[in-house]
Write a protein that binds this DNA or RNA. Structure first.
Lengths: 207, 207
DNA sequence: GCGAAACTTTTACCGAGTCAAACTTTGAGC
DNA sequence: GCTCAAAGTTTGACTCGGTAAAAGTTTCGC
């Protein structure tokens, strides 16, 4: 009933249509330069409907967040026995990279995605807000398992910082014009460097 | 000329007046419930003037950011020889705490401050944006010193995470109604726990 | 004092986001 | 099939944050 009624299918279709239209416009002209009214018109729908599906304008572009959050949380929660959270995430990042997944940092719906993201402060702010949501989710999982609230929050924060920084690094280089293939080749090392710091500490860097 | 002209004094006075009026209203009624127009009127000034001094509404409340950024950056840049960035920050947090400084987490312009901050998503978002600015500044200082761009960014991120998490921890407890003095007593241990994790790594937590 | 520069106000405007009421579509039961 | 209620969409009006430009007003250098 909830699943394959005509109603539900139409909703999903509308949602997808709006999202696609919006993303297309954003990549063509930049986030701030496209108004919600315009998106609505281009999608043949009213402005109110757009906000019905996507509470904030930013969510029109960053609409994969829920999936990503669930995936990352599962990586930690369902990791094999004997593997630490840190190690599980490290492996996950490597596997994203080798499977050429958009979220590995390199490649990602073309360079347009990064350009749009970095071109708007509002959008980047929302992006980082999503990272915080990930940290919060990690902290819950870790606290559930360890019972140590503060330590869990810290570790969650550190792990999220690794993911974010790895990401931002690749993004920065691609936006700066570096060859995507080249960035991709070096990305494995970047991942290890980041997780090594989290796992073994920063020591007395920088001397 | 730039310093003690009548002009400059008036500007500082106006700025302070607006900030005080705004903060007062926010603490009374919450961030979202007060409009900029209202603040302007209460301060006997035009809306445009408010935005002249504070580019965003959020900056009316979070107006100590510049000072804090400068202070934290100096802690790293001007640390004594032989002391790591991590250690310098750890000591700084301890000294903030023992001097009862607002930004140590415990106490802080009364509990009202924390309530206002947590009551508004826009405000918390801006708060975390400021933390990112701190991370960026740290990264610059560290990169200048070490020459390692990515590692600097990572370490900067990890250090900032420590500060932020320490902060958020105290804030959470106070907002939840814990006694401020009690929180304050435990805060030293919290600081050490956080910086230990950054310095020596999370290892295989949580087992 | 005079004129230029700095600061403020006014006015007009834009776009995101909300709200309530009218309207259309879908699904369920008879 | 038809009807009715619920879900979804549209409309239009509104609020608020934020910007822009031009017209005041105040301070400063001379």
């Amino acid at each position: 009933m909830a699943d394959h009624g005509l109603r539900e299918r139409k909703k999903q279709a509308t949602r997808l249509l709006i999202s696609n239209v919006a993303t297309g416009l954003f990549i063509q002209r930049g986030f701030e330069e496209v108004t919600v009214a315009e998106i609505a018109e281009a999608a043949g729908v009213s402005k109110m409907t757009v906000f019905n599906y996507f509470p904030r304008k930013e969510d029109l572009f960053l609409d994969r967040h829920a999936d990503r959050l669930a995936e990352l949380t599962a990586v930690i929660r369902d990791r094999p026995a004997g593997v630490s959270a840190c190690e599980a995430l490290r492996r996950h990042q490597h596997s994203l990279l080798s499977s050429g997944h958009p979220l590995s940092g390199a490649i990602a719906g073309g360079p347009g995605f990064w350009w749009v993201l970095t071109s708007s402060p509002a959008l980047t702010a929302r992006w980082y807000e999503q990272e915080r949501e990930i940290a919060t989710a990690f902290a819950e999982v870790l606290a559930e398992e360890s019972g140590e609230a503060f330590r869990s929050r810290m570790v969650a924060g550190l792990l999220t910082t690794a993911i974010t920084t790895i990401f931002a690094h690749a993004m920065g280089r691609i936006v700066a014009g570096d060859d995507a293939e080249f960035v991709r080749e070096e990305q494995g090392e970047v991942i290890d460097q980041a997780f090594d710091l989290v796992e073994h500490g920063v020591g007395d860097f920088p001397g």
